[in-house]
Design a protein around this nucleic acid. Structure first.
Lengths: 259, 259
DNA sequence: AAGTGGTCTAGACCACGCG
DNA sequence: GCGTGGTCTAGACCACTTC
């Protein structure tokens, strides 16, 4: 009995449950993956094969499979087939220290590179005017990068700075902060806001995941020692590849704590 | 021209783009919402109406609408209709202080309550044995709560503690930490790991969101002053309702920073 | 009872990949 | 060329809400 046939066996067992067919099928496939009957990289039968063997329509098979693709369990390659998604080892990043993406990854023995998505001077958006304290006649420097580790895209970083501190975005080498440091504009403090979002089409394509999977959305505002805002960065991280780690402390004795 | 008709106008304009029909329709609806032509709470035409007016099949309409539901733009109520999702004001939570959910929300003037999902003593899972340092003959106390603010479910918290520090989980009042404090077992420090995930059916139902929307998954390990692990909590937060805020600092002078 | 979303079907054509 | 996933159709029945 082939591994994939286990799926059909489980399906038959659940066939009197009254649950929708696509749910029964979805659970059967999920079970087969969780039990290791089919492992990462293995191919599933084609949608048409599943449909005919399980005696359900291809539309219904697709609904089950699509759900699992969006959940990151399966991956589909147009013209090629449907496969169990490779297990992704997650990367941890500290939430209490300003660290370098490049160095962070290098310390983990990962091969890192970036792709420029955008570098230039623009008229500021209302958001940027507010946060960076720009007037509508000033310009904003935007730099956007796709961060890649071991050939896996991990994050999209879109930074905005006043053009007065970064008049020539094209001149940045591999490090934005190094460029800022040469003019004494290196941030010493930042505040980050983290939330979850379903990735849109554009971001999903860049990060090589199906649209709709969960991602971490991060807004960072960086400050100079003087307290002036220097940088406003909006980033999107792959939810399946990233863990952010934070340490919580009691700030004083006698503090009330009831989580 | 009714507000909803704007959708069809936009659809006709994009009809020569060559893009898939469901994408054209999805974008038209998204645009109408973003431009405020239809606001939160407003009803969309029924799937059948959209299908006939736009001269496409209902299956295709459903694909477009489903995508927007999973993205949190629309909500559907079985038997009632499809509506623009109400704008959710996000709640911010600090990532550097151990704070109380109840107090945090009360400070914001929100009405808070919890629903117990589980309270009891169990044989520990391998995870729990590892983290809490239990042997397989010891028991683990599990307490799980659904956190609700202003009648909106915000989070599911599932805590695990050694039964030796919480022998009677049923005896907890509204505050786990208060119960721990009476025996001198109140944590003073915690480490959190944050990631993003698509919510599964069970969690999505509890949080009253459609399955598959993005949520924040948080693992917290809490420590006593002695350094002993006291609590292991796995939580799931609604991604559309929560922002976690962290402050980053340079830990010392001369530190390398190149994000 | 009428209208809504939820599920399901059988069949079609297109776009992509692989040998 | 052949098999794969990607899109689309027209029609059906069920389950739920609302009147």
């Amino acid at each position: 009995m082939s591994a994939a046939d286990q799926i059909f066996a489980m399906l038959r067992e659940s066939s009197q449950s009254g649950a929708p067919l696509y749910l029964q099928l979805r659970r059967s496939i999920e079970e087969a993956v969780n039990r290791g009957l089919i492992g990462p990289g293995d191919a599933l039968p084609s949608e048409r094969d599943i449909a005919s063997k399980a005696d359900i329509s291809r539309v219904t098979v697709r609904k089950a499979v699509q759900d699992l693709v969006k959940g990151g369990i399966l991956v589909q390659r147009h013209g090629s087939g449907t496969f169990v998604a490779p297990r992704m080892e997650r990367v941890e990043q500290s939430l209490s220290r300003l660290t370098s993406f490049t160095e962070d990854m290098a310390r983990r023995g990962m091969n890192v590179r970036s792709v420029w998505l955008d570098r230039g001077l623009y008229a500021p958006s209302p958001d940027e005017m507010m946060v960076l304290g720009l007037s509508s006649t000033e310009l904003v420097a935007r730099v956007a990068r796709l961060r890649i580790a071991n050939d896996t895209p991990l994050a999209i970083e879109r930074a905005a700075l006043s053009a007065s501190v970064l008049p020539d975005p094209e001149a940045i080498g591999s490090s934005l902060y190094a460029a800022l440091g040469t003019t004494g504009n290196r941030p010493v403090r930042a505040v980050q806001r983290i939330s979850a979002t379903n990735l849109g089409d554009a971001d999903a394509r860049l990060l090589e995941v199906p649209p709709g999977v969960a991602g971490l959305q991060i807004e960072r505002i960086s400050y100079l020692a003087s307290g002036k805002v220097i940088e406003f960065t909006r980033s999107v991280y792959r939810g399946d590849a990233y863990d952010f780690v934070a340490e919580l402390r009691l700030t004083g004795p006698g503090e009330e704590i009831r989580p």
